[in-house]
Design a protein around this nucleic acid. Structure first.
Lengths: 122, 122
DNA sequence: CATTGACAATTACACGTGTAATCTAAACGA
DNA sequence: TCGTTTAGATTACACGTGTAATTGTCAATG
């Protein structure tokens, strides 16, 4: 199951809060896209067909909810990039950003804390 | 400039060694793909049009070399994913893999070394 | 009961991408 | 000199994706 960039924006709305009617998804996306209502509905339908979301009847309309978990999607997308560019490993990506001086202080603090936790757990 | 997954496989060959003739690129890709010669040539042509590579005449054939640096491509692709899924930051991705117990010992050792270097440099 | 509006369903099209067949023309060898 | 080979150029098509218009259906309304 492959979720496109546009589809993942719709998923993001439903991950944050569900179930939602199509009109609510449209409204939520209005903040960050210029999409017309039929656009969002097409994406909802494609996600339905991909079984990434489910719909339940609510009177005359449907309420949509995610079937695909955000963590699973995030994992698959991340792993795909790591496999293609970093020999499937996390450290080379971190090294890449470190070399480019693109790690914020917050990033560094969090990485230290993470490494500490890992040491402690193992 | 957007480089597709298939195009990045061609780029990978040229990043590893260049300049190369089309036949050499075809041969190099035979290890990991089932592509026919015209397929690889189409991808080379699309990359030429995108100015990701350059061609220089060598008798009757061309020799191809990358114009786009691998590090730049890797950075753009990584940043795009981080922006979309991890609020633009590296640490949440590392946390994600840590939570899923997907960091290898090698990863962890390298991350420790990196954090140590960052501390030392700053 | 006809009209209206809401909601979904269907259809549409451009473009990028994956993949490769076919065409063209120059170089080569007999 | 001519047929063959080689290398690139051109064309082709299916599919996914982005985006949205149009059509269909049905409940609500006057």
């Amino acid at each position: 199951m492959s979720i496109s960039d546009a589809e993942s924006q719709v998923m993001q709305v439903l991950w944050e809060r569900h179930p939602l009617g199509a009109d609510e998804v449209v409204a939520a996306l209005a903040d960050s896209t210029d999409w017309q209502e039929p656009t969002v509905k097409t994406l909802l339908n494609r996600l339905l067909k991909k079984r990434a979301i489910a719909a339940q009847r609510d009177g005359r309309r449907y309420l949509y909810r995610p079937l695909l978990a955000r963590a699973d999607y995030v994992h698959a997308a991340s792993k795909s990039l790591l496999d293609r560019l970093f020999d499937g490993r996390v450290a080379p990506l971190v090294a890449h950003f470190s070399e480019r001086r693109k790690l914020s202080k917050k990033d560094i603090a969090e990485l230290k804390r993470l490494i500490g936790e890992i040491d402690h757990d193992r």
